[in-house]
Design a binder for these strands. Structure first.
Length: 595
RNA sequence: GGGGCCGUAGCUCAAUUGGUUAGAGUACCGGACUGUCAAUCCGGUGGUUGCGGGUUCGAAUCCCGUCGGCCUCGCCA
């Protein structure tokens, strides 16, 4: 008689010494088999863990025969009695004090040998894992990741629900908008020649919810951007998108801090201290060279422009003479900084558009610190002054960078993060969460000779900086805020413009004419006409939160069915060509050669 | 679009740098085995060296092209 697999008494990770003597019924996958002829062990796995099942003639001779034919990933259901393992306990698994004597066994589904071992220590390539993602996801580590993802998503929903937010869905088939990332387009069949765009974010819709009087909105929503992929960028990704009415920036940040605190508590059991530290954009750039500083380690940037401006070293003279800066990073632990390592850093800087990174090593001289190697001969007379300014001590290495402020920030940020890795300065299990505030409203693109929104065009300028829009727009700060965790941007948001005249002035500065603005954003601008409350919000990258908290190296590890770098799904093969009839219905002709 | 790394058995890798029959571990198949913990022991099957072309007496190895995967710059309001 078949074993009723729909009546499991326990999961495979649940049994303990306290269950000894009980009759149990378990189902799952064969993790491994150890066939001793007259006796056989089956490790039975489900998402909760592993239980060892022992088959022997005393339990059931027929079941032993069947058990000896089992192979990895066969799906079975067993009945038996929990017994103590006595002196044979396995301390490596939580159920290791007990085993189940197999008294009945049904094979529910025979498995072909899998293309790779279903285990946390599998050595299969990512390519193979993605092709057979359903097997990859069966691995315990992936089960943990996606269950943590669920916990985070549920925490977010519960938190915002408890705070009076309402979740409302926004369209996926929507309107292509000019600025920002490249849109994914969807052709219209009933209006041939016209296209929908998949949303890059529900930004405008959530603002209209505020106009509509919903007061507080939060949605976990998919967003789409057709740009090149990276380890931390997928073409479709998930955001927690939220918006609040009648608030200032502080109110949004306080609300988000509560959510972040709940996420850390529920996902990792960690109590975060709030309120979180805040840093201005300018301070972040000055000290770390990046608007998302990793504050888990030192190696801060230090300005020595005034000290070295007279030095006979062409790159320094050029930078100092043309309004640029010379900054440096002081690193201790010089033993690891061999010639090979510092030369490697120079190559990396060249690889991202720079020239290199000149260095000196600090030594102890009779009359104070001296410099050696690198550009020491140019700086020797200033050794004492530079060490006094920067705190460099004998044995330290100083990495210099001359250039424009932006160049120095970009390259020294790279040097700083690489040095932290090389010198192993990044503490494990530390979570540095902070706000970066006071972003510039706009940044100038010298190539395109025009202004771009730092955040997005609906971000409000600071009230006291509104007059600067007409005089020095580069100095106008915005009511934007970014949440940064260990050097990664986790969320970004702002207070929005709710006055049409201010919105019009910002559009003008961005080179968007009234006519163009009306054409592209009329649905927002019209909305703002009819009584828009002051409002603001934020968006979290949910995938990135999971990736960080689960300590996974790639976003692909926290998305169930991710795309490769060329935006292909290795499981389904998408994207694929379509039938000529489908293109006909959409009035489309493909210029690409047949695949 | 640019730079870099990689592709050999189902899987992970090796092959003395151009040399004659492409190996190992694991998986799989067969056998032995009543206390294993990724069981062990014995035996066996398994190859379009990503694909196409070229150089050569001879190519996994060198050259050209192409396909695929990864990292990265540009790009990502």
């Amino acid at each position: 008689m078949a074993i009723p697999y729909n009546r499991r008494t326990h999961k495979c990770g649940e049994l303990r010494a306290a269950h000894v003597g009980q009759k149990v019924r378990l189902a799952g996958w064969v993790d491994s088999y150890r066939d001793h002829g007259g006796m056989a062990f089956i490790d039975l796995r489900d998402y909760t863990g592993i239980t060892q099942v022992r088959f022997n003639p005393e339990g059931n001779a027929a079941a032993l025969e069947l058990a000896r034919s089992l192979r990895a990933e066969d799906v079975i259901v067993i009945e038996g009695t929990v017994v103590s393992r006595g002196t044979n306990i396995n301390p490596r698994i939580p159920t290791g004090e007990i085993e189940v004597i197999g008294e009945a066994l049904d094979l529910l589904s025979k498995a072909e040998p899998p293309p790779f071992e279903i285990s946390d220590r599998t050595d299969a390539s990512e390519e193979l894992r993605l092709k057979h993602r359903y097997l990859d996801l069966r691995r315990p580590v992936m089960q943990r990741v996606f269950r943590m993802r669920h916990v985070i998503a549920k925490t977010i929903r519960d938190y915002f629900d408890a705070n009076g937010f309402v979740e409302i869905e926004t369209p996926f088939l929507t309107k292509s908008t000019p600025e920002g990332a490249r849109d994914y387009l969807v052709p219209s069949r009933v209006r041939q020649g016209s296209f929908y765009a998949l949303p890059q974010s529900p930004q405008i819709f959530k603002q209209l919810f505020m106009v509509a009087g919903f007061d507080r909105y939060a949605q976990i929503v998919r967003c789409f951007r057709d740009e090149d992929l990276r380890a931390d960028r997928q073409p479709e990704f998930t955001q927690l998108d939220m918006e609040m009415s009648f608030v200032q920036a502080d109110d949004v940040m306080t609300m988000v801090e509560g959510c972040a605190k709940a996420i850390f508590k529920n996902a990792l059991g960690i109590d975060m201290t709030t309120p979180l530290p805040r840093m201005t954009y300018q301070e972040a750039m000055d000290r770390f060279g990046i608007d998302r500083p990793d504050t888990r380690f030192g190696l801060e940037l230090q300005d020595v422009t005034d000290l070295v401006r007279g030095v006979e070293f062409a790159p320094f003279k050029e930078a100092a003479g043309s309004g640029g800066v010379i900054k440096c990073i002081v690193a201790s632990g010089g033993e690891a900084l061999t010639r090979k390592v510092t030369d490697g850093l120079t190559e990396e800087i060249k690889g991202i558009g720079g020239v290199g990174v000149p260095i000196v090593k600090v030594a102890a001289g009779d009359a104070g610190p001296t410099f050696a190697t690198g550009i020491a001969k140019h700086l020797e007379p200033l050794a004492a002054a530079i060490c006094a300014r920067t705190g460099a001590k004998p044995g330290d290495t100083i990495f210099f960078m001359p250039g424009t402020y932006d160049e120095v920030c970009k390259y020294l940020h790279h040097v700083r993060t690489r040095l932290a890795e090389i010198l192993k300065l990044i503490p494990e299990n530390r979570w540095d969460l902070l706000w970066v505030v006071d972003f510039p409203l706009m940044t100038y693109d010298p190539d395109e000779k025009r202004w771009f929104s730092t955040h997005h065009p609906f971000t409000a300028p600071m009230d006291e900086d509104i007059p600067l829009l007409d005089t020095e727009p580069n100095k106008a700060r915005s009511k934007a805020y970014d949440l940064v965790l260990n050097g990664t941007e986790m969320a970004g948001g702002s207070i929005r413009i709710h006055q049409r005249d201010v919105q019009a002035r910002v559009f003008n500065l961005l080179g968007i004419s009234d006519e163009e603005a009306q054409l592209k954003f009329s649905f927002l601008l019209d909305g703002l006409k009819y009584g828009a409350p002051p409002h603001g919000g934020i968006a979290f990258g949910l995938d990135r939160w999971v990736m960080m908290l689960a300590k996974m190296p790639s976003l692909r590890d926290v998305v169930a069915f991710p795309k490769t770098q060329r935006a292909v799904c290795l499981l389904t093969g998408a994207p694929t060509p379509v039938a000529a009839k489908q293109l006909d219905e959409l009035a489309l002709i493909s210029k690409a050669p047949p695949a």
